[in-house]
Design a protein around this nucleic acid. Structure first.
Lengths: 183, 183
DNA sequence: ATCCATATGTATCCAATGGATATATAAAGG
DNA sequence: CCTTTATATATCCATTGGATACATATGGAT
């Protein structure tokens, strides 16, 4: 399991590396199935070293979720219309389903008590606000439009994922979802 | 931890009791935080006894999820219009959030390989089909209507739950969701 | 430069957990 | 009655998250 061997006592980059490895492991096995120890092993430190950089396992997962939202934000920030946003959002979620599941799994308390996570989420929401809102509409109407878009996108993905919606043809599913969103 | 003491070697009702206790524990602590052993302890059997009735922990959780969908079905089957269905669905989910989360957490494979679970889910979908479909519409249109309703209901609940949507006033949120659904 | 507070990493331990194997007990049918 | 089969127990194991105590470097302040 253990990977690299260090000559130095200090690793020097545990936090970053841990998040990087965790991203891989999450996508490979799903976040409920990864262990602190596996991550530490891969970067060549004692498992307890991670506790110097994260409060606990959830703290680590929060950091990974934050990285996920930041990556998602970087993608959608280049979108200039609804259609491309929808496409980019679905692409991201479908190509990295386990990461997406982790991002959406953080409990309410965590979301509101972790500024970095909140900020990353907000980056994505801000883009949606720009694309799904309009200058002529009231702020309340815009809030609703973004809410509806978010709900449809995420709700659709979840129900497709767990098989409650029987989605045989993905392309068709995406088209249907887009239609609901444009309406 | 242990509860009852038996005089008989056989317990006689392990499966039912396990599900009953699990429902309580799930609602108390969330399904990722309950243990086979805690459940077995509460009904007064060795933890290994549960393996005579469930394949493994996931098998147990599948059974609990099935019971959840059956209970939900019993509730919504008495609804005679969209509004009451929406209200009943949201009530159920908001009053038993951890059970609802468990119900929605079963992976795709499980959903399709567990007939009892599939049947219970179908009971709920059937009701939605009746209420959100119409005789004049095409089957395809009806399928879409149900899909949209399901997505909005579940999506709204999830995003409210994890705090990505900032829901300050629950009553207002429910009204907004209902509006989207009736439209 | 030296010393010390602090950050970072290790070693070792622990209780809880899911699960495996072997065994005991009972129920049910031939 | 006796054997088959379902059910429950006892015991064991590896893995896991986390705690405590200790080791080692780093980077100011003097």
């Amino acid at each position: 399991m253990a990977q690299e061997k260090r000559s130095t006592y200090r690793h020097g980059n545990v936090r970053e590396e841990a998040i990087r490895v965790a991203l891989e492991l999450v996508e490979a096995k799903g976040h409920p199935n990864i262990s602190i120890r596996a991550i530490a092993g891969q970067i060549g430190v004692a498992h307890r070293a991670l506790y110097n950089h994260f409060s606990d396992k959830d703290g680590l997962l929060d950091a990974v979720a934050t990285e996920g939202f930041d990556q998602m934000a970087s993608v959608v920030e280049s979108c200039t219309d609804k259609a491309s946003f929808i496409s980019a959002y679905l692409d991201f979620s479908l190509s990295r389903p386990f990461l997406y599941a982790l991002m959406m799994s953080r409990p309410h308390a965590t979301m509101s008590e972790t500024p970095a996570l909140q900020t990353a989420v907000h980056r994505v929401i801000t883009v949606a606000m720009k694309l799904f809102g309009s200058d002529t509409a009231t702020p309340e109407e815009n809030r609703r439009a973004v809410m509806k878009a978010t709900i449809l996108l995420h709700g659709g993905l979840v129900l497709r994922g767990n098989g409650i919606l029987d989605v045989s043809d993905d392309a068709h599913f995406i088209r249907e979802l887009s239609d609901m969103l444009e309406a």
